[in-house]
């Protein structure tokens, strides 16, 4: 079964890095939706089936914490697996975020760390690769 993923980050570069990591991680990835703030993400979540969300915290319009609260309050979305990918370094705030049943990855991260966390949260321990064919060197 392939996973539909939503990536929420105000940086297009960071969204690309996360998407590339997922695509080379060995997970079978279906649709990848991208949103640049919490408000856009909520619209996408209401219109599409999403299996996993990767969410930044500091974003304009609607931040990641508000987005997570809204998702957890919505009976249709409450169980959505969420990985927070953020520069947030306050230990108190990280504890508070984790209490909302999310995993946490601190930026900067090695792509391997993201892969392990996603395997863990989705319950997949190994998979088939969806490696893009554009490999220029080896």
């Amino acid at each position: 079964m392939s996973l539909n993923v939503l990536i929420v980050d105000d940086s297009a570069a960071m969204r690309s890095i996360i998407q590339k990591t997922l695509q080379i991680s060995g997970l079978e990835i279906g649709h990848v939706y991208q949103a640049k703030n919490g408000e856009e993400a909520l619209v996408m979540l209401e219109e599409n089936w999403v299996d996993l969300a990767l969410v930044d915290i500091n974003m304009p319009v609607m931040d990641g914490e508000t987005l997570i609260n809204r998702v957890r309050e919505n009976p249709d979305l409450a169980e959505l697996p969420i990985v927070v990918v953020s520069t947030e370094s306050s230990e108190a705030r990280i504890v508070q975020l984790r209490s909302k049943d999310v995993e946490f990855i601190h930026k900067p991260f090695a792509p391997e760390t993201l892969r392990e966390t996603v395997f863990q949260i989705t319950g997949v321990d190994n998979g088939t690769s969806t490696l893009p064919s554009s490999n220029f060197d080896f």
């Binding site: 990591t21 695509q23 080379i24 991680s25 090695a110 792509p111 892969r115 490696l131 893009p132």
Partner: peptide
């Protein structure tokens, strides 16, 4: 090594 692998879609 990490840069080269990342550019070639390989994770460690």
């Amino acid at each position: 090594l990490r840069k080269l692998l990342w550019k070639n879609n390989v994770l460690i």
